[in-house]
Amino acid sequence: METIVFALLNGVIYGLLLFMLSSGLTLIFSMMGVLNFAHASFYMLGAYFAYTIMGATSFWLALFIAPILVGLVGAVVERYGLRKVHANGHVAELLFTFGLAYLIEEIVKIVYGKTAVDYKIPSLLDFPAFTIYGASFPAYRMFMLFIAIGMLVGLWFLLKKTRAGLIIQAALTHPHMVGHLGHNVPLIFMTVFGIGCALAGLAGVIAGNIFVTDPAMAVLMGPIVFVVVVVGGIGSLEGAFLASILIGLLQNFAVGISASFADIFWFTGLSPTSEIGDITVSSLAPVLPFLLLVLMLIFRPRGLMGEQEL
């Protein structure tokens, strides 16, 4: 029973974290048609910036400043890099962000070293929040949950309830018309790119200390975020949300199941010592998102909520 409760909680938290990353990616993609390959690198930058700021001041300051810094870096990248490459088409843009991901990783390696940095959970939140069935649940994870929900509400409010959100939504579909109405469309693009990167940075700030903050964290996270975006339906925020939660739950439940293929497919007479029979569901967890991607592409190519087949 506690396995289910914990997997549920962790799954939702991980899912919301994925959504923090994939929402920015989806917004940027549907607005500019750019798939930001370096998106997970901004997530990594968030964690590293927070580590530096936390060393100098406190975690609470880092929580606000690091995402803003990451957002600014993103805006600069858009203004001086992407905008220049834009003329050469989407493939060039994708390649640019691919190269950028490479560069960010190498620069991080030079500045912070190749091994993981000691980015800790703030001591204020380092206690068990509650105990069920004899196992305790860390308070920091609850804090992550609240931050993620806060971000979700904030993003929803920004996009649906404010004038700026209205203009952003209009610019998603009709950038020329928005331009004719006198809005500075390139500035909107830059802002959205910045916000998207800041969200990724925020995810890095709150996840970097619970996972590991090392130069490989971008490479580990990046492909999963892409899977979320494709499974959710490219360009759909709702889809990205569903897919994030789905993948979060799927992975966390799979980790908790120690049954092997031989146990599950006992009726086929699969031997537990054979190579396939020996595979456990928990060892399958890291592969599941990609398996989901392939299945999705075969059976429902437009994704969960995608409007058209791309």
Binding site: G33, V91, P223, E275, F290, P301
Partner: peptide, 29 residues
């Protein structure tokens, strides 16, 4: 299935498939 799309979607699919196969490779010694 991967060449049903082109452009950006194809790029993402290729990445996902590569990750799947790379991760799966360690299961079949």
């Amino acid at each position: 299935f991967s060449t049903k799309r082109s452009g950006t979607t194809f790029a993402m699919i290729s990445l996902g498939v590569a990750e799947l196969i790379f991760a799966g490779a360690f299961m079949f010694d």
